[in-house]
Nucleic acid binder design. Structure first.
Length: 552
RNA sequence: GCGCUCGUAGCUCAGCGGAUAGAGCAACGGACUUCUAAUCCGUCGGUCGCAGGUUCGAAUCCUGCCGGGCGCGCCA
C-alpha cells in the first residue's frame, strides 16, 4: 500500500534517526507545517540544553546526517530551526499515489472501535428548535468522520419520549380530540403550548395529568396507545427535518428514554447493593467523589426521586449500561450541550464505580456552546420565545440561491468554529460567498465540475510549473492529517478549516493557471490537479454533511 | 460561595509550547473582450483581558485577579 500519504510522518521518520544519532537518545523531530517553509522541525532548540551545544550547531549536524534521499531540501534557519522544503518530485509522486486511491490517502483505521454516538435527542411533542441544531449537526459530522475512518459507529437518538410532561400531553390530546380522535399534531409547538396553558390554568386538568402519568407508567393500554401516537407523529416530524438537513439519522436510530424504563428498578437495586446510594430527603442519591456545590457540600446525582419516580440520571445510567453491555461499545460519545457537562461527568463516575464502565471503555461528553442572536444573548424571537428550527431553515433557504446552499450555509457555520464556543447566528455572514463559508466551498467545487466538463479530455501526470500548482498539490496531501485531527479531538472544525484552505488554494490556482488555454501535458496535469481537488472537496464536504453541487 | 467554560484586529473567528500571531468581513486601492469576478491581488489594522510564574522559548502550560456565559437536589 504505497498509497498512504503523510508528508509530516515521512519527514518525521527520516529525521528521527539523525536526531537520535546527534542526541545520543531518541528525540521527537517535532515536524510541523511552517510559514517559513513547507515544514519545520524545532527539535534542536529543545536539545540545546541537554547537549550543551548551540541549537544551530545541533540543527546543522542533524541536517548533515539526515537521509532525506532527495525528498526534501533542509536548511538551518533562525535560532535553530530546520526548514524543510519538500521536492516537487515527492509532491508529484504522492499525488500519483492519490490518483489510484479512492480513500484519498486516508487509511482505514487498524484498530476499529465500536463507537456509540448519542446526538440530536429532541423531545417528543415539541418541535425541534435551534437548541437541537448543534447536537444534530456536530454529532452527525462526527459519526460520518468516524465511520469513514473504519470505526463501527452506532448512532443513537436519545429521544425525550418519557416522563411527567406526557401526562399533560396525553390529557390534552384527549380533551381536544377525545380518546379515539384522529388527531393531526400538525404544529407540535402549538400543541405543546396549548397543553401547557391548560395545565397552568386548570386545577382539574393538573390532577388528571398526574393520574395519566401513573396510568402511562403502569402500562394502561389506552394510555399507551395515545402515547405511542404522539411518539410516532413526532418521529415522523424529526425524520423530515433530518431528511431536509441531510443528516444520517434514520428510524432505526431512535432509542428514546422509554426504552430503559423497565431497567430502572434494576439500576437502583444494583447501585444500592453496591453501596453507592444514600437516602437524602427521601431521594436515593449517589455522591461521586469530587463534585461539590454550594457551601462545598457534595452534589447529589438523584437516581430515584422522593416520590419514588426515577430521575433522568437513572435513565442515563441504564442507557450507558445498555450501550456497554449489550451494544458492546468501546467508546461512548455524548454530543450534548455544555450545561450538562457536570451531569455527565457524574453519571460517568457513578457508572465507573458500579463497574458498568470498565477502564477499557471511554466515555466523553462532547459539549458545545450556544447559538446567540445579534444581541449576544441566546437566540430568541422578538417575542422572547425559542426559535423554531424550521423557521430558521426557511429563512436561510429564502435568502439563498438554492435550498442546498442555504442549508449548507447554516450547517457549515456551525461546524467551522470550535464547537466549545458560542457563536452568533448571522445569516448574512453564513451565506457570504467568500471567507470560510459553505457557499465558498460549494462554489469552488461547482467551478471545478464546470471546468472538467468544458475541458473534456483525460487528466495526466501532475507537473509542477507554477507556484500555485505546487501549493495546490501540497494542500491536496493534507486531507489525512485533517481527518485524523478532527476525529481524535472530536472537532469537525479542523476538517472544515482544511477544506477552506484547499478551496482557497484552488481559487488561486484557478486564477493563475488556465486549463482550457493550456495544451498537452500541462493541460493534462492541470486537469488532474482539478480532479484531485474535486474528489477531495467532495469527500471532505460529505464527511461534514455539506452537499457538493455540480452546478450553481 | 464552589465548579466548568470563554475573553486574540472595529466585527466574526482560526492558531493552543516554537521564529515577524493568521483568515474572512468592514475600510481603501487594483484585476473581468472570464475556464462561473459567487473569484483573485494589494494596503490599512493586534501591549493575544490583566498580573505573576515555569521554560532556551508562552496567545498556547501553571497560579491569582478582572469580565461574560453556564451549572450547583428531586426538569432533561
Amino acid at each position: 500500500m504505497g498509497s498512504i500519504v503523510n508528508l509530516e510522518q515521512l519527514l518525521h521518520d527520516r529525521l528521527a534517526p539523525a536526531f537520535e544519532a546527534v542526541a545520543g537518545a531518541p528525540a521527537d523531530p517535532a515536524v510541523r507545517a511552517s510559514p517559513h517553509a513547507d515544514f519545520q522541525s524545532g527539535a534542536a532548540l529543545g536539545l540545546a540544553r541537554t547537549l550543551g551545544k548551540p541549537p544551530r550547531e545541533i540543527a546543522a549536524e542533524v541536517a548533515g546526517k539526515a537521509d532525506l534521499g532527495g525528498l526534501a531540501e533542509v536548511t538551518v534557519s533562525g535560532p535553530g530551526f530546520l526548514n524543510l522544503t519538500v521536492s516537487d518530485d515527492l509532491i508529484v509522486a504522492s499525488l500519483d499515489a492519490l490518483a489510484g486511491d479512492d480513500r484519498l490517502g486516508v487509511a482505514q483505521t487498524k484498530t476499529p472501535r465500536r463507537i456509540v454516538v448519542d446526538y440530536s435527542g429532541p423531545n417528543v411533542a415539541k418541535e425541534m428548535h435551534v437548541g437541537h441544531l448543534r447536537s444534530t449537526i456536530i454529532g452527525d459530522a462526527l459519526a460520518r468522520i468516524l465511520d469513514w475512518q473504519g470505526h463501527e459507529v452506532v448512532r443513537v437518538n436519545h429521544l425525550g419520549d418519557w416522563g411527567t410532561p406526557f401526562g399533560m400531553l396525553i390529557e390534552h390530546l384527549i380533551s381536544t380530540e377525545g380518546v379515539d380522535g384522529d388527531h393531526s399534531l400538525g404544529d407540535l409547538t402549538d400543541f405543546y403550548r396549548a397543553a401547557r396553558a391548560e395545565f397552568d390554568a386548570d386545577e382539574g386538568f393538573r390532577t388528571r395529568a398526574r393520574l395519566r402519568v401513573v396510568a402511562l407508567q403502569s402500562g394502561d393500554p389506552d394510555t399507551r396507545e395515545l402515547w405511542r401516537r404522539l411518539v410516532q407523529r413526532s418521529e415522523e416530524a424529526f425524520l423530515a427535518v433530518y431528511d431536509r438537513l441531510d443528516v444520517t439519522l434514520g428510524p432505526e436510530d431512535f432509542a428514546g428514554e422509554s426504552r430503559y424504563q423497565d431497567d430502572l428498578a434494576g439500576v437502583v437495586a444494583e447501585l444500592s447493593a453496591k453501596g453507592l446510594l444514600v437516602e437524602s430527603d427521601g431521594a436515593l442519591c449517589a455522591f461521586p467523589a469530587g463534585f461539590t456545590g454550594k457551601d462545598g457540600a457534595p452534589v447529589p446525582l438523584i437516581v430515584r426521586k422522593g416520590d419514588g419516580g426515577f430521575g433522568y440520571a437513572a435513565t442515563d445510567l441504564a442507557a450507558l449500561h445498555h450501550r456497554v453491555r449489550d451494544l458492546g461499545a468501546d467508546e461512548l460519545l455524548y454530543v450534548v450541550g455544555a450545561p450538562q457537562r457536570t451531569h455527565f461527568q457524574m453519571v460517568f463516575a457513578v457508572a465507573r464505580a458500579a463497574g458498568w464502565l470498565p477502564e477499557s471503555v471511554s466515555a466523553e461528553h462532547i459539549g458545545f456552546g450556544s447559538v446567540l442572536g445579534a444581541d449576544g444573548k441566546m437566540l430568541k424571537t422578538r417575542a422572547g420565545e425559542t426559535l423554531r428550527l424550521a423557521d430558521l431553515l426557511d429563512e436561510a433557504v429564502d435568502r439563498a440561491s438554492a435550498p442546498e446552499i442555504g442549508l449548507a450555509a447554516i450547517k457549515y457555520a456551525d461546524l467551522s468554529g470550535d464547537r466549545r464556543g458560542d457563536y452568533v447566528f448571522d445569516i448574512d455572514r453564513m451565506l457570504a460567498t467568500s471567507g470560510n463559508t459553505g457557499p465558498y466551498l460549494q462554489y469552488a467545487y461547482a467551478r471545478i465540475c464546470s471546468l472538467t466538463v468544458k475541458a473534456g479530455g483525460e487528466p495526466g501526470r501532475v507537473m509542477i510549473t507554477q507556484p500555485a500548482e505546487r501549493a495546490l498539490g501540497l494542500a491536496l496531501l493534507g486531507l489525512e492529517p485533517a481527518v485524523r485531527g478532527a476525529a481524535q479531538a472530536r472537532e469537525p472544525h479542523r476538517l472544515a478549516g482544511y477544506l477552506h484552505e484547499l478551496a482557497a488554494a484552488f481559487s488561486v490556482f484557478y486564477e493563475k493557471c488556465p486549463v482550457l488555454r493550456s495544451e498537452g501535458a500541462v493541460r493534462a496535469s492541470r486537469l488532474a490537479l482539478a480532479g484531485h481537488t474535486a474528489r477531495t472537496l467532495h469527500r471532505g464536504m460529505f464527511l461534514l454533511g455539506i452537499p457538493a453541487l455540480e452546478q450553481i
